[in-house]
Design a protein around this nucleic acid. Structure first.
Lengths: 262, 262
DNA sequence: GGACCCGTTCACCAGCCGTGAACGTGCCGG
DNA sequence: CCGGCACGTTCACGGCTGGTGAACGGGTCC
């Protein structure tokens, strides 16, 4: 029922596009950047006329994408509704969320479930244990696949040409001095991940942050990756090497069985 | 910095609207209902021509609101990104989320933070304890204020004319036989809530589900409500009457202090 | 191999988006 | 109390673009 989950490497056609919708998106972005704004502020920010900005804000308001309080406009929570709906449409979503939560309470650290979209990593679920929170990764943020443990776990399960396409499109930007920024090095790393069964992130996205992730492959098809992340000083040593992989792989295997037979 | 948080009872003007953006939203809704669809399916669902549907899908794709996999279109996670961003812009968001989480692990039940928007209740944060999950309330869903504990807690803090406006606009639809569907009865209930300091939901939205909520009012201004919800057979009796209110009020008071001085 | 089906492109015309100016209202200073 | 300003909202109009229907091309199933 849920079809093919592979990535789509096509470039988006610059033509065949509805201009008014694009300006609408620009209004949304302006509102996101400004936080709260009046009509004239939105107009100057987007370059629209006052009347035009008004029309757009009004249109967005009809669908709860924008809220008006007196004379102030801000983004509304219509986006949350759609996003939340979508999150639980993903195959096995509620099972995944449950397991991520138990993983979080067992390890005490921040645990994530991440998928690939448009060559980037998107976090669908995030639960934190009783220990202090560390990452600033939010549900929905788009990160680079090659900079994160979950991303590398996903990449390790994709055919080589797909990985090539993704690298062509989004590049390999660096974040810390540990980030893999070379294509060869990335492929080597992916081979190691494939062999080992899970991926590390040793301060490759943020200084002081390490993580561990395993791909979720219930049916010969990569669904995403489960990760445990925490500060290096807490889980850096033995835990990252031996204890955590065991618990992580246990949870992921269980998940795969649950999802495959349902 | 964050301005007025009161509700805005204005009706949205039917005119002064951008048509192309509305059809774009219709495409999104079609895609949400269909789950995954081809261009022609979207076209027939929305009544657009094939070419027109294509243009719209393409436009949405540029902003990650739509994903294309081979010949299949589905909603993308761009909405999640915006929604998540927004969630943490709300005043005191991360403090609130933390406290909701501790509340969940202390009580073991599902705990929510809910706000009011457009006369409806929107759940911003939801955390579940170690006991079985019960409600199907998702982050982002819009519920009726008068049907939920959190909603009634919020209403109890609003001026009477605002409550009147809201009731005029959204009505008092029933969900179970316990739902308050009469305006007089609602005002009586709100007076009791105000006096007591917290609100109950005794199977007023879903059979078998009870809840308890307290308004969060850090600065003379209602921010939202914190709620604990669970099945009647588990928390129905003494807990709901004495134990839970105490822990809930404790957490909310602490939250109010944290938010007021920050 | 041919007939269909579907996604994508293309040209075209009417309707609509966006503009700029006009209107009205609330607020501040005098 | 009053006048002026600034802002949201409305309005009429013109150029452009959104949406149409038909044509193209590639894939797949008989």
């Amino acid at each position: 029922m849920s079809g093919d989950r592979a990535t789509d490497p096509e470039e988006v056609g610059e033509e065949a596009v509805v201009g008014a919708v694009e300006t609408s998106h620009e209004v949304v972005e302006a509102l996101r950047d400004l936080g709260a704004a009046t009509v004239t502020e939105v107009a100057t920010e987007t370059g629209l006329s006052k009347g035009g900005a008004y029309k757009h804000l009004n249109t967005l308001r009809k669908r709860d994408f924008v809220t008006k309080t007196g004379t102030e406009y801000r983004l509304g929570f219509g986006f949350l509704d759609l996003g939340g709906h979508l999150r639980f449409q993903y195959p096995g979503a509620s099972t995944i969320k449950d397991k991520i939560q138990t993983l979080a309470s067992e390890t005490g650290e921040a645990c994530l479930f991440t998928i690939e979209e448009h060559g980037r990593a998107v976090t669908l679920f995030r639960e934190t244990g009783n220990r202090g929170v560390f990452t600033r990764t939010r549900v929905g943020t788009r990160l680079y696949l090659h900079q994160t443990a979950g991303g590398k776990a996903i990449l390790s399960q994709l055919p080589e040409e797909t990985v090539d396409d993704i690298v062509d499109r989004v590049g390999l930007p660096g974040a810390t001095e540990n980030t893999i920024t070379d294509r060869e090095a990335l492929f080597d790393e992916l081979a190691r991940v494939r062999e080992r069964g899970y991926a590390f992130n040793r301060e490759e996205s943020t200084d002081g942050l390490v993580a561990l992730a395993a791909p979720l492959v219930p049916d010969d098809e990569i669904l995403g990756a489960c990760a445990v992340a925490g500060p290096r000083y807490r889980i850096g040593g033995d835990q990252l090497e031996s204890e955590l992989p065991e618990t992580l792989l246990g949870v992921v295997n269980e998940l795969e069985l649950n999802i495959a037979y349902s």
